[in-house]
Every structure is written in C-alpha cells, then in structure tokens.
C-alpha cells in the first residue's frame, strides 16, 4: 500500500453566496480505511463529496485524491473511484441493466468488450439480477439505491465514495450493504461513507470525521474518539467535597446542570483523563472522607459525544 492518503484536503472551502457551506476543511482519509463521514443533514457532507468528485468547484483550498490533485487529474482519477452521490439517479424509461450500460459507456476508459459481463456482475453483487430487465421507474426506493451502488461497483475501484448508502433500504438491505462494504474493504478498497446515521458509522468504520455547519469538529479513528469519552460519575451527598477531590486529580468537571453550582446536587461527574484509573479516584474519595453512594465509570456513547460536538441530535434509530 502506498503511503499517501486516499483523500486529502487542505483548507477546502465552498461558499454559496454569503453562506460558507464548507469551511476550511482539512481531511485525511487513509488508504484501506473505512472512513465514516458523519454529520447532520445540511452540515456540508454532500457539498464536500461534490467537490471531491469535481462536480462542484472549490472556492478555495486543495484536494488530492489517490495521490493526484483534483480536479486537475479528474480524468485519470475518477475511473478508479466509484461513487454514490446524494442518492441514486436513474433513467426511468430504461431497464436497470440499460441504466448501468449507459453509465459505463460514459467512462471513456471502460473496456466495452467486458461491459455486459461487468454490468451483470455488479447487478448480481447488489442482488438486483432478478429485476435487471425491469424498467427502472418500477423500482422501489431500495432497488434504486441498490442500482446506484451497483453503478459504483462497475469496475474494480481503489476508492468508493458512498453518500448515505443505506438510505431507503429495509433492515435486511442495510445489513447486506454493510457486509458488502466490509467485503470491499477486505479486498483493499478504501471506502468513504457519509451518513447521518451514527449506528451505521459505528458498526462499519475504522475512521470517523464529524461535520457540523460546514466545519470539521472531530477527526480520527473510532478508537481515538471513543477513548476520550470515559467519565466517572460519583453519587454522593457530599457533592462539593467530591468535586474538590476530582479537581485535585486534574479531572475536568462537567458543567453542572443549570441553576446548580458545582457540587450542590447529589452527583458529580468528570471526564476520566488518561492515566487516572477509577481505583485511584475511589481511593482519593475515600481518603477525603466523601460518602460515596455509588460510583460509575462509563464510556460515553458516541451519540452523546457527537451531540456534544455538533449540538444536534442524531437519528439513532435509523
């Protein structure tokens, strides 16, 4: 594997009128990763993907994809990239198969001799073979989504950019797409998945970036993001004392609920920073004579973490 990243952006910015849809984005997608691109609707994910694929020009900033500058090297890079952008798009008057044949013909580098075989293989891979001859306007939302994914798989790709890949799919379809992405990743393809569904990202991805209102608010491996979230909560009638003890251990206290001052309630919580073990906290509390009713150590769910980062809720249920 080459050392350079599959996608690398620096200072990427897109301005629509007076709105900064994407603001100074520095993103690195390592090769071979399954990269989750998370953010609420309207946070700039799709605009970023459009710029990556050369559909929209960047207002400023640079993009390198598969080691080449974009959109300068668009013609040599894009054949190696499969994409599903903002949902599938179909010619309703063509069959599913004819839809793929047409999109494949659009690729100047796609060998025509193997076109039909490749189209059939892609349809097979997304489980659409049985409906291949059906006019696409008769497709369900989920079938259209599968057709869109099949289009991304027409040729062996080094990078897949999938925007909301499980949109419109039933739970079974969602599971199939997930296993498809895993198998592609196992073959060595870098997969860049954007989603507003936390659970999807959490189950699939090795790396995550979080967008909020056009800005990147978190960026790293899933483990890195999870690790920072372990917190300790002490339930005690001596809240003020407990807060003092935790502060002495250099643990950052959580903001108390509104109306309370630190330690005025019956519980105190703080982030358990690296190197401080739960037993150390317990010992310190006991040594300080804090009456501990209970002490819990919990990794914050990613959801809580992202709500904190983006200030918005996620559609966890999917």
């Amino acid at each position: 594997m080459t050392t350079d990243a599959a996608i690398e952006t620096s200072g990427l910015t897109k301005i629509f009128g007076r709105q900064r849809a994407v603001d100074d984005l520095d993103l690195t997608v390592p090769r071979g990763s399954v990269f989750g691109f998370l953010g609420p609707n309207g946070s700039g994910k799709t605009t970023t993907i459009r710029m990556l694929l050369g559909l929209a020009g960047a207002s400023s900033g640079e993009i390198r994809m598969l080691g080449a500058p974009m959109p300068g090297a668009l013609r040599s890079v894009l054949p190696r990239v499969g994409a599903l952008v903002e949902g599938p798009a179909i010619y309703p008057f063509l069959s599913g198969r004819a839809n793929l044949l047409r999109l494949d013909a659009a690729d100047l580098h796609a060998p025509s001799a193997t076109r039909r075989a490749r189209v059939d293989a892609a349809l097979d891979r997304v489980g659409l073979s049985h409906a291949a001859q059906k006019k696409a306007h008769a497709y369900s939302l989920g079938m259209k989504q599968r057709l869109g994914i099949a289009n991304a798989l027409l040729r062996p790709r080094d990078l897949l950019i999938l925007d909301e890949p499980s949109n419109g799919l039933d739970p079974q379809g969602t599971r199939e797409v997930r296993s498809l992405i895993r198998s592609l990743a196992a073959e060595g393809t870098t997969v860049f998945v954007s989603s507003h569904l936390l659970s999807e990202i959490e189950q699939l991805c090795s790396h995550v970036a979080v967008m909020s209102a056009g800005r990147l608010v978190a960026h790293g491996t899933l483990e890195e993001l999870r690790r920072g979230e372990v917190r300790v909560t002490v339930r005690t009638p001596d809240a003020a004392n407990a807060a003092r003890v935790l502060t002495e251990l250099n643990l950052p206290l959580d903001e108390p609920a509104s109306g309370d001052t630190a330690g005025s309630g019956d519980s105190v919580s703080a982030v358990l920073v690296d190197g401080v073990l739960p037993e150390t906290v317990t010992a310190a509390l006991v040594a300080a004579g804090v009456r501990v009713r209970g002490l819990s150590v919990a990794g914050e769910t990613l959801e809580e973490r992202f709500v904190a980062l983006t200030g918005e809720g996620f559609d966890v249920a999917g």
């Binding site: 694929l53 050369g54 668009l74 013609r75 894009l78 054949p79 798009a89 999109l103 659009a106």
Partner: peptide
C-alpha cells in the same frame, strides 16, 4: 434526472 452527476463522475468528461 440527476444522471448528469453520474455521467460526469463516470467520468464522461
């Protein structure tokens, strides 16, 4: 139809 973006991403040029 939205197919324009897929033609361009193919890339059709």
């Amino acid at each position: 139809l939205g197919t324009l973006r897929y033609l361009l991403v193919a890339p059709a040029g």
